[in-house]
Design a protein around this nucleic acid. Structure first.
Lengths: 145, 145
DNA sequence: CATATATTGAGAATGATTCACAATCGCAAT
DNA sequence: ATTGCGATTGTGAATCATTCTCAATATATG
């Protein structure tokens, strides 16, 4: 059993909810990729798989996944709602160019210790963190002149 | 003239667009607060001010503000689209409880040095950064048992 | 196996966002 | 100041995503 499956079934059991085949199928599809997803394309992917799960079921599942900390709402560059799941990647961070939208990923393990201390002081048990830095990339800076 | 006004008028001029009274009013309202905003509540605030600007005008302005780097799309806890503007606050960060949604703000100047080094290596000129830590707060952890 | 509750799909209802269009506006060139 | 032209606006209609309703199933429990 995958880690995400264990976490989600525990969450469901805690609230007397059930782990239905539909929910299992949707989760499998979500966690089969690391990419962000939106409802429509997730629904398409499920249909390609041969599933006839309705969009309503997806919409109904999402709040549970958010609540349980499996996914989180995000937004694409144009502000459209997407979701990203929180398993299977080690924390990675982003440099985002405000001018051209380019995104550079980086890792920064050194930050973890600092943040652990902050969490401790505030009674938080962290399970994920993200750093986003906004600025202007070298190419755009050159172009500006 | 405010910094944001200078930046936006420059952006408009560059594309032969005009800085109309409506746009000025909307910008003033957006930058009069540090909070995130959504279209509906921004529209309400404008009406309270006595303005009759239509929502369509707001919707039409937003892509320009995003493009010009004045605001950025964000998302509230439930995934609803909001925007935050990018002027005038010192960097602050968030601990977010995945269970109950509580948000604790903190500051962490020590991170800045680490991030400056990352930026330098990648040729970025940063002007803002945000750290989001997701976890479970003390109250929710207690309740879980 | 019977019961109570949760879940589902379909389609209707809602609400947010975009579009179309006719009436203004603002700027630049006279 | 006047004219001309593209940009901008408000209105209301159209579209699109999301939520809701309801009747039919499925699931867990005793």
């Amino acid at each position: 059993m995958k880690k995400w499956e264990a976490q989600f079934t525990a969450y469901l059991k805690d609230r007397s909810l059930t782990y239905t085949p539909e929910r299992k199928t949707i989760l499998e599809e979500i966690f089969s990729s690391h990419d962000h997803f939106d409802v429509e394309s997730l629904h398409d992917r499920l249909r390609e798989r041969g599933s006839r799960i309705s969009v309503a079921t997806i919409y109904r599942l999402i709040p549970l996944l958010v609540e349980s900390g499996m996914i989180r709402p995000a937004t694409d560059r144009r502000g459209r709602p997407t979701y990203e799941h929180l398993f299977g990647h080690r924390p990675h961070h982003h440099l985002i160019c405000s001018r051209c939208g380019k995104v550079v990923e980086f890792r920064l393990d050194a930050a973890e210790k600092l943040l652990d201390r902050v969490c401790e002081r505030n009674g938080f048990s962290p399970f994920d963190y993200r750093i986003g830095v906004r600025g202007v990339c070298a190419a755009c800076r050159r172009e500006e002149r």
